[in-house]
């Protein structure tokens, strides 16, 4: 499990107009944290920083003991592949791949996650199948349905399976319930939390929907930890 630490992290798209200025943010290993913030508050920028796609202007982002802001671009890509699972808001799957191939895709770019899948399940395919079964997609798996034949909720569950295969230390979900109704949203969130626990992953869910907070150990309001002026001025 990963401990996430942000220390004096600053980021600005435009010079002298910082979007993010986080003095400190500490997420313990195994925690289920909900980061809530309205649109434009810098949630997406924060995710890009946490996954190493953006580098902070200053400060340290430490995930599982590694200061990812000090890594080279290639090493950051490798780190992301090895240690972070990511669930998008929607359009999570590659439509031209089967369910199982979509799930296994995450292991194709990471030897570490492949090794873990092999260690625990004997093969990457078996690991993917087990995840899909756990996430209630056994019937779809057996019937070899295509991505296009799945409902949005089912697609999100396949995305969770892909994010969790090879047991990454950190699971990040970016507004994963925005396309779901209230009942499906709660069911999906509970399932996500349960699976993250099962695979010992620290869970970090980002959304504007404050109703999701009830499911998590802790809720962080982005505007509380972000002292940058852009959002406040807006």
């Amino acid at each position: 499990m990963a401990k996430v630490l942000l220390d004096k992290v600053k980021y600005s798209w435009i010079k002298d107009a910082p979007l993010l200025d986080i003095a400190t943010c500490d997420i313990q290993s195994g925690e289920r944290v909900f980061i809530q913030g309205p649109s434009g508050s810098g949630k997406s920028t924060l995710l890009n920083l946490l996954t190493g796609l953006l580098l902070p202007d200053s400060g340290v982002i430490n995930i599982a003991g590694s200061d990812i802001s000090s890594l080279s671009a290639v090493k950051r890509d490798c780190f992301r592949a090895d240690h972070i699972g990511f669930v998008f808001q929607q359009f999570n799957l590659l439509p031209y791949l089967s369910l199982i191939d979509n799930v296994m895709l995450a292991c194709r770019f990471s030897r570490v996650r492949t090794q873990r899948a092999l260690k625990h399940h004997g093969s990457v395919r078996k690991a993917a199948e087990q995840l899909l079964v756990e996430l209630g997609l056994e019937k779809q798996l057996r019937q070899r349905v295509t991505v296009a034949e799945l409902s949005v909720g089912q697609q999100q569950r396949v995305a969770v399976a892909r994010a969790l295969i090879g047991s990454p230390e950190l699971l990040i979900a970016d507004e994963p319930t925005s396309a779901l109704d209230a009942a499906s949203r709660d069911t999906f969130t509970e399932l996500l939390i349960a699976e993250a626990s099962r695979y010992n992953s620290t869970l970090l869910l980002v959304s504007h929907d404050e109703a999701l907070g009830q499911h998590f150990n802790r809720t962080i309001l982005l505007q509380h930890i972000n002292s940058a002026g852009v959002f406040h001025a807006a």
């Binding site: 796609l53 290639v74 890509d77 490798c78 992301r80 090895d82 999570n92 590659l94 770019f109 990471s110």
Partner: peptide, 16 residues
């Protein structure tokens, strides 16, 4: 674009 974003999220490098 989304296809590329998905690939990047799972660790695909720019050269990929």
């Amino acid at each position: 674009r989304k296809e590329m974003a998905i690939l990047r999220s799972i660790g695909a490098r720019p050269w990929h």
